[in-house]
Amino acid sequence: PLPEFSGDQDFQQFLQKDLEYIRKIKGDVAQVQELVCTTLQLCNEEELMLVKQKLGISQAPLDQCHSKTFQDACFSQIRDGLQIYHGHLALLLQVLPAHSSRVDALRLDVSNLSTNIQQQMEDLGLNTVTYPKAEGQGTLPSLSSNFDRQASGFIIPANFKRFLEMSLRALRHLTTA
């Protein structure tokens, strides 16, 4: 039911605000990745393929956003994915203790954006149903060693940045500007 909305002025403003906010959060995630590199010496994702697979930290789903005909479900997946990453990013408070205020600020932005999307969907009368998550999706594995925690401290922001880039592409389709 979305296409005829896309010309609507409120909807466009809602999109512009979300696009700007996602760009801001993406910039902040890049800064956190820099901190992970300088502080934890973890800079290259190629070196962590094995441990990533072992830990099984999956990317939050955005499959509903790939289809040409834009679905309410895509907004729901963006909103739910943001909540998942808000939870996962808490791990960074452990592995970057000296930068907790920056991590807190990032998580606050992530939860604000998720709330904004939820409210805007309600205001625009979109279907706000939460899609069932695949088993284990969204929950972090138990991290037994310091290495596993620090490796996750690299993997989570890397996943989240890809998630934000996909969200940006999906929402840009809808802007008429």
Binding site: L40, Q41, E47, L48, L50, V51, S145, F147
Partner: peptide, 18 residues
Amino acid sequence: KLWCFVVGNSTPQRIGMA
């Protein structure tokens, strides 16, 4: 930080750290 790598066919993989 003391890193342990396993060298396989692809990029050396970080396996553990102390």
